[in-house]
Design a protein around this nucleic acid. Structure first.
Lengths: 221, 221
DNA sequence: ACAAAAGTGTTGCTACTACACCCATGA
DNA sequence: TCATGGGTGTAGTAGCAACACTTTTGT
């Protein structure tokens, strides 16, 4: 490799979504250093040569900054315009990440004193071009929910159909018809009836379901 | 930026497709230097700081290596596994590129003595992980043809419906029903009847169409 | 008895598939 | 007149959207 070839900083940034109390939320951290000190940002950081893959870098940075681990990650796209980071030329690879709201407790770690979950409809101003990265990831989340079985990444092990519907409604930010939703989901054949019910409040108990397969796959031919 | 942060090589690689004589082809170059000297590869090269965007890098490298310019480019995804390039850690951003077969004449340039168009069904062995990059781009091409109006990037200014159908058939590698194809395309309302015909051989002349709008857009809400 | 969420079917519309014949032309 | 590709319509099916009432429970 000739000397004249330039090298650049690489980061991975993970846009982590969850649906918590019927609200779509995203994980952000407060920056402790300049630039954009004190502003919120998508968790991520610099690729190191010890990271064997970009995925590994995304996992490592997410864990270091927020304590979140064992999470679904899907690589999205690269952002590399000049000037997007005032420190120098940085190419960022964005990730879509999903986590069940059961697992969103943040353990404060060295880097994560100010990590938190923010409703997507009420975001703080974000550092860098993270608004663009987040919007792109949100669009991707919607299309993935419609074309793959990733919903299982946002639900607990067993759940009711109403809970599942709330996940779709939160992500798409619109209400769905109960009968049509249930018909569609049942026709996909992804769910297993657990023959248990969940009683919650003064009304008829809801049947519980789980996914037959918790392996990410497309629903189209 | 602290000294301990590592930097990496970045490349952009453009997977350029065309449909030439009803066959889907991809543009490859023969490598003139090690590693993989003499093997074929997707055209691309190293990001330079003068490139204001990743797109600009992809355009520049494609032009330098193949003489191809003024072409549709869409950024796809990053490849960054360790060991994918024996020279060192290289992160590659792939691009989907499309060109009309009218414009595929390759002018030999300094770097492009061995650029050529290869049918996708009969590819030579490719350098690096370019087989993976190509397959990913091909999947993307198919889904883009189904959900956007990019077909205009693969057709001449005016064309017949049969020519358009051949583009879809070549890309999807399957035959389509003539009546259904025409019904679908007409219902999209993208085409303008040019009130001209094209006579070619001993049979009824074909009506010529062009796109109302040659601006890339999605066909779904 | 009532309040609250669970659960369930039908109808109309749209979009896709499969399929066969006539038309305009040059040789 | 024949060979060639251009051009057209219909019937069946599958999937989506709109819509209201009964069931089961706790209080």
């Amino acid at each position: 490799m000739e000397e004249i070839i330039e090298k650049f900083y690489i980061t991975t940034d993970a846009v982590v979504f969850t649906v918590d109390k019927d609200v779509l939320k995203v994980l952000l951290i407060k920056r402790k250093n300049p630039p954009f000190k004190g502003m919120f940002a998508i968790p991520g950081g610099f690729l190191q040569n010890k990271d064997k893959t970009l995925d590994e870098c995304a996992y490592r940075e997410l864990y270091e900054e927020t304590g979140v681990k064992d999470i679904f990650l899907k690589k999205l796209i690269a952002f590399g315009d000049k000037g997007r980071d005032p420190r120098g030329r940085v190419i960022t690879v964005s990730y879509l990440a999903l986590i069940s709201s059961e697992d969103i407790e943040l353990k404060p770690t060295t880097d994560a004193s100010d990590a938190g979950w923010f409703p997507v409809i009420r975001l703080p101003k974000l550092a860098f071009d993270h608004k663009d990265i987040l919007r792109h990831a949100l669009d991707k989340l919607k299309s993935e929910l419609d074309t793959t079985n990733i919903a299982f990444q946002l639900l607990p092990e067993i759940f009711t159909l109403t809970e599942m519907q709330k996940v779709y409604e939160a992500a798409h930010q619109k209400m769905l018809d109960k009968r049509n939703f249930r018909k569609k989901i049942k026709s996909l054949g992804l769910l297993k009836d657990m023959h248990q019910t969940k009683m919650e409040g003064a009304h008829r108990p809801a049947k519980l379901y789980s996914f037959k397969n918790k392996i990410y796959c497309s629903l189209r031919a």
